[in-house]
Amino acid sequence: MLRVIELLGRYIMSFAEELGRILFLLYSTLKQMVLLPFEIRNTFKQMLEVGIRSLPVVLITAIFTGMVFALQTFTGFKRFGAEALVGTVVALSMTRELGPVLTGLIVAGRAGAAMAAELGTMRVTEQIDALETLATNPIKYLIVPRFVAGIFMLPALTIVADIIGIIGGYLITVGLFEVSSTLYWKRTWDYLEVSDIYNGLVKSGFFGASIAIISCYKGFYTSGGAEGVGKATTGAVVLSSMTILVSDYFLSAWLFK
C-alpha cells in the first residue's frame, strides 16, 4: 500500500514538474515573441511546414469524415424520418468538433512529431548550444516561429477541414441518397451560427499553441542521443494528442455554453 502511494506521489510530482517546465517555456516564448527583431523568415518556413504541408492529409481526412458522417447519420435519421437534417448535423459536428479536433490530431502527428524530432536532434548534436554561442536565443530562433505557425495555421487548416467536410457530407447526402441539394444547403445554413465556426476556430488556435509548445518542449529538453530523440518524438505526439482531447472537453463546455 505504502509503495502504491509512493509511486503515485512520484508520478504526481514528475507531472507537476513537467507542467511547470512547459509553462515556463511558454512564458519565455511569449516574452521572446514580442521582442524585436521578428523571425519573419523562419516563421514563414514553419507556417509552410505546419500549414501547407499538412494540407493534403487534412483534406483527405476531412472529406472522408464528412462522407462517413453523412452516411451514418442518414441511415440513423431515416429511422425517424429526419433525413433532411443530415446537412445540419454534418455542419455542426464539423465546425464545432471534428474540424478542430481532427486537424489538431493530424498536425500533432505530423508537424508536432517533426518539431520534437528536429529540435531533439539539434539538442543532441549541440546545434542548440551552437546557437547560444553565436549569441542567438534558441527560444526566439527556434520555438517562437513554430509557436506562431501553430497558432495561425491550425485555425486556417480547420476552416479548410470544415468546408471540405461539409462538401463530403453533401456528396453523400445529395449524390448517393438523392436528398435535394437546395434542402441540404438550406438545412446547413438554417441552423449553423457564426459562433459555431468562430468557437471552433478558437479551440483550434488553442490546440495549435498546445501542440507547438509541447512538441518544442519535448524536443528542446531531449537528452540521451538517438534514443532520446525517439522518446521525445513519441512523447510529443502522445502528450499533444492527450492535451487536445482533454482540453477539447473543457473548452467546449466553456465556449459552447
Binding site: E126, D129, E132, T133, A135, N137
Partner: peptide, 18 residues
C-alpha cells in the same frame, strides 16, 4: 548575449545547422 559576441566556438561534432 553581448558578451558572447566576443566568442567563437568549435564543437566536437561541429554542430553545423543542418
Amino acid at each position: 548575449y553581448e558578451v558572447r559576441k566576443k566568442f567563437g566556438m568549435l564543437f566536437q561534432m561541429s554542430a553545423l545547422f543542418d
